[in-house]
Amino acid sequence: MTKALDQIDRKILTQLMRDATLPIAQLADRVGLSQTPCWKRVQKLEAQGIITGRVALVDPGAVGLGLTVLTEVEAMDHTPEWRDRFLATVTSFPEVMEVLRLGGQSDYMLRIVVPDMPAYDAVYQRLTDKVPLKGVRSRFVMEALHRKTHLPL
């Protein structure tokens, strides 16, 4: 269900997506509110689950995680039990940054971040040891040319 957002909520979200460390006074000034109403709107957006967290963005290469792998997975079957096992497995791996369910030839796409190829191979082996898969295709990211974290509100 889409939540109805007014223009002020959109401005608040846009500012916080660009810099979640903004003090409430600056945020309020940027969106045209006083501090208390602005803070109440932020709390409401959090309570509604629209703001799901606040994080620091880290350059993976700067912390020794130089390989990003996009891994397509074809499910062995489509039972609830298999899906539950698969999801429990992949979400338990700290290297798996995203799990996307797809339409088309592949069923899932995993975004995996690791230091190097041997580390990816270890993730691959752990995954295939724990969950029966019909097929796995991996694509290795050579360079991230464009990346953003804020939504186009």
Rank of each mutant, 00 (worst) to 15 (best):
H150I: 08
V73D: 05
A56Y: 10
P80T: 07
R83E: 14
S34Y: 06
D116L: 06
R137L: 12
L67C: 06
I8L: 08
R126Q: 15
K44Q: 01
Q105L: 14
V69H: 02
T149M: 13
P37G: 02
V73N: 05
T2Y: 06
Q26N: 14
D19F: 03
K40S: 08
H78Q: 04
A25E: 11
T68R: 05
R41Y: 01
K11S: 13
V55K: 04
M97Q: 15
G104T: 09
P23W: 04
F140D: 13
L151E: 11
A144M: 15
R41D: 00
A88K: 15
R137T: 14
M117P: 07
V31S: 01
P60R: 03
R30Q: 13
Q26A: 12
L67D: 05
H150N: 14
Q105G: 09
S138K: 10
R30Y: 07
S138C: 11
A122L: 12
E81M: 11
D116E: 14
G104C: 08
V58L: 06
L45H: 00
G66P: 02
R126E: 14
D77N: 07
Q35T: 15
L22E: 04
R111H: 09
L13H: 00
L133R: 14
L5M: 00
E81C: 08
E81R: 15
L22C: 07
R54Q: 03
L13S: 02
V141M: 14
L45M: 02
R83L: 08
Q35P: 08
R30K: 14
Q125L: 13
V42L: 00
P118V: 09
T52L: 01
V123N: 03
V123I: 09
G61M: 10
P37Q: 03
M76I: 09
I51E: 02
Q15N: 12
R111D: 08
L100D: 06
V141K: 09
R147L: 14
G104Y: 06
L13W: 01
M1E: 12
L151W: 07
A75M: 07
V114E: 06
P115N: 10
R139I: 10
I112E: 01
R126I: 09
T14M: 06
R85N: 12
M142S: 12
E46W: 01
L27G: 02
P23N: 12
A88D: 15
L153P: 09
D77V: 04
S106M: 12
P94T: 03
M17L: 09
R18W: 04
F140N: 11
V113E: 10
M76K: 13
H150G: 08
I12S: 01
F93S: 04
D9V: 04
E81G: 12
V123Q: 04
P80E: 06
I50P: 02
F140Q: 11
G66N: 13
T71N: 05
P37H: 02
Q35M: 11
L70G: 10
V99C: 04
T52M: 00
F93A: 02
T14H: 08
F86R: 03
T52N: 00
M142D: 10
L87A: 10
P132F: 07
Q105M: 13
T79S: 15
R126G: 11
G32I: 05
Q43Y: 03
G64F: 01
L100C: 06
E46P: 00
R18S: 08
T89Y: 00
V136N: 12
W82A: 03
D121S: 13
M117F: 13
L70I: 15
D19R: 03
P80I: 06
D107F: 10
L87F: 09
T71E: 05
R101M: 13
A88L: 12
E143Q: 15
